Simulated scan of single mutants.
Amino acid sequence: MRRMKPTVYAPSLTPVWKLLRECGYDPDPLFREMHIDPESLRDERARISLSRIEQMWKWIDQHSDNRCIGLGVVEHWHPTAAGALGYAWLASSTLRTSLERLVRYQRMISEGVTGSIHEKAGEVSLVVAFHLETEEEIPVWVDAILALIVHLCRINYGEELPLTSVSFRHREPDCASRFYGYFRCPLEFGADDNRISFPAAILDQPLEGSHPTLARLHDQVIVDYLAGLKQGSLVEKVKNAIIERLPSGGVTDATIAHALYMHERTLQRNLRQEGTTFKSILNEVREELAIRYLQDETLSLGEISFLLGFTEISSFSRAFKRWTGVPPSDYRAGR
């Protein structure tokens, strides 16, 4: 089974789109050049290949004269950019639970960025790591992620949030004063890792926006969403989804895309990249199941037709003859 390529939650690019527009760039042709469908940014089920996101940030890093452009992402962030995780974060009871929730469910937003929590000597640190194809971090992307995390913490805790320090692996930019102005704490550039450090004492203080019930509800939405991102071949995932839904009828590429938390066109495009189509997979699943069911003498042709999602026996018979060259009744009799 082939491992699926890492992906990113499409709506999370909305702040980047708005930032580019604010900076005088037209994001539409840029996104299309990177093979990112602008419409997918409004589709909560759409995901985009991590490699395309990497290309986009590389373009921004190479073409922008503003080395602090990544910090501007926070001005355009909205909870919907992180889906259920954004709202679960806002409803968290403490900053510690906020950070733990982010680390636990970050794969919903990106399968190329991970976080880990480290605690010692009265200090708690969130270490952010990037797992890219080129294994080379993109400074403006790192800046955007760390700035956004601090922004989220300030939303929950307040603008007076005290930070112990923030570290960056990349070298100090020529606009470092803006970094100090935004983070308002000691900074280290050229560090061993990308890290945000907090005084441990503040992490367990109750937050005014705490709503445990809402947080748990959003957590369940996240868990259900992540269940659709299990590693494995897209073809196998489509097959499994088809098998589960065939008896109820109405199996289409649209319904399966919805079940897999994908946009219909995204599913079609990704299947083409795998060298197949939804119709081919549907026919293959039906043929395999039909042969299996016909070997069971307790199942009538009518029952088999129903299990395969056909409304009439005649439709099933025509399809089976097209697949195998013989009607299902002849196949069963000659088996």
Results as ranks from 00 to 15, higher is better:
G70M: 11
Y105H: 14
I243L: 12
E312Q: 15
S64G: 01
Y25D: 05
C68W: 02
G115Y: 06
R42Y: 13
I281Y: 11
S315V: 10
G158H: 12
E208S: 14
E284G: 07
S93E: 15
V127S: 04
K58M: 07
F320E: 12
D65Q: 12
P139C: 06
W77M: 08
A81P: 12
N156G: 00
S177D: 14
R3H: 07
V127G: 02
D174M: 08
R101W: 03
E274T: 02
V150P: 05
E33I: 05
F306I: 14
I69C: 07
I60R: 01
P186Q: 12
R245I: 06
E160W: 01
S64L: 07
E244D: 15
S177I: 09
D296C: 07
S280N: 15
S98V: 00
C175Q: 07
S125T: 09
A200T: 01
A88I: 05
T298N: 10
K58R: 14
S165H: 02
W141C: 04
S40A: 15
R52A: 08
L161W: 09
R178P: 01
T277Y: 00
L308A: 04
S167P: 00
A254L: 00
E284M: 09
E135K: 13
F168R: 08
S12C: 13
K321F: 00
A290Q: 04
P328L: 00
R195V: 14
G115F: 13
H263T: 08
M1S: 11
T298F: 01
G209W: 03
E100H: 08
P29K: 00
Q268G: 03
L132C: 07
S116Q: 15
G112N: 04
T134W: 04
S329E: 04
L282M: 01
C23P: 02
T164A: 14
A121T: 08
D65E: 08
S93C: 11
R171H: 09
A319V: 09
E100Y: 05
W323Q: 12
V238H: 06
M34D: 00
L301V: 01
P6F: 07
W89N: 11
R107F: 12
I145C: 09
Y225L: 05
